[in-house]
Design a protein around this nucleic acid. Sequence first.
DNA 1: TTTCCATTTTATAAATATTATAATCTAATA
DNA 2: TATTAGATTATAATATTTATAAAATGGAAA
Lengths: 138, 138
Amino acid sequence: MENRIKKYKSLKIKLTPQRLAILNYLEGNKMHPSVEQIFKYVSRRFPSMSYATVYNVLNTLVKHNVVKEISIDPDKKRFDPYMSTHHHLVCIKCRKIIDLDMDFSIGVPEDKLAGFTMMGNHIEFYGVCAQCRGKDKD
Amino acid sequence: MENRIKKYKSLKIKLTPQRLAILNYLEGNKMHPSVEQIFKYVSRRFPSMSYATVYNVLNTLVKHNVVKEISIDPDKKRFDPYMSTHHHLVCIKCRKIIDLDMDFSIGVPEDKLAGFTMMGNHIEFYGVCAQCRGKDKD
DNA sequence: TTTCCATTTTATAAATATTATAATCTAATA
DNA sequence: TATTAGATTATAATATTTATAAAATGGAAA
Ligand SMILES: [Mn+2]
Ligand SMILES: [Mn+2]
Ligand SMILES: [Zn+2]
Ligand SMILES: [Zn+2]
């Protein structure tokens, strides 16, 4: 059996063609796509695909820790299949989101936490990407 | 003239009653309110207030660096009038957003940046707040 | 292999969130 | 006080997300 399928089998969820199509699109995808982008891509091969299914599948995958929902774009939800701990560089011009593979161990003193139990962190670095910098030299 | 009004005057924008009402609601507000919350509050005093005005005013204030739009809640935009550099503790149970007044100087090695010009960062710490921790002891 | 059924997909509607438009109104200036 | 650029309102349109129920089907059991 194909390796990828075996991997998804282990999730103990039904492997429907629609789910496989979405999983294949997400596999290795570094674009942090929105629901709209996912829908547009997979509906090319699955013309009957509906937005509801994309939402259903994504919610299921998030629940099973196969993708992360990221709150960087204030306009829409974006999804990230790259599950290792990592952070993001966000271009304030073109809104591109670039992975940053580093692990920062950021300590917060007890007295600043006010009883908050820390479980992790995510850093959004903002600035201007190489491409956008290349343009408008004003 | 009232101090607050003088401060807003310096923005060089028209000081309408609606804008003042929204500004007064935001002043010192640590709740990171959504458009809906802002609308519900100010429309109590301004029954003719419309959502469009709330969106208009907030967009203007963001443009003039009086409030920040924060992308923490994936479901809706939230706004923060606290303009000093700070970070947030986010409760994964009740979704409360708590200010963390610290300045982390996080260095990222050049080779990881790939031409990205760094301008700043925002850290979202996630975990469980004191109140939610107090409940369900399972 | 065939049957069965819990789960999923689809189609659709509804709810929620946001933006666009144009007529009306008003704060600021002279 | 009159003028006007800019703001508000009402409304419609668009975009995003969730809810619902009927139809379809993947996977287990026979
Ligand atoms: Mn990523
Ligand atoms: Mn804050
Ligand atoms: Zn860019
Ligand atoms: Zn909480």
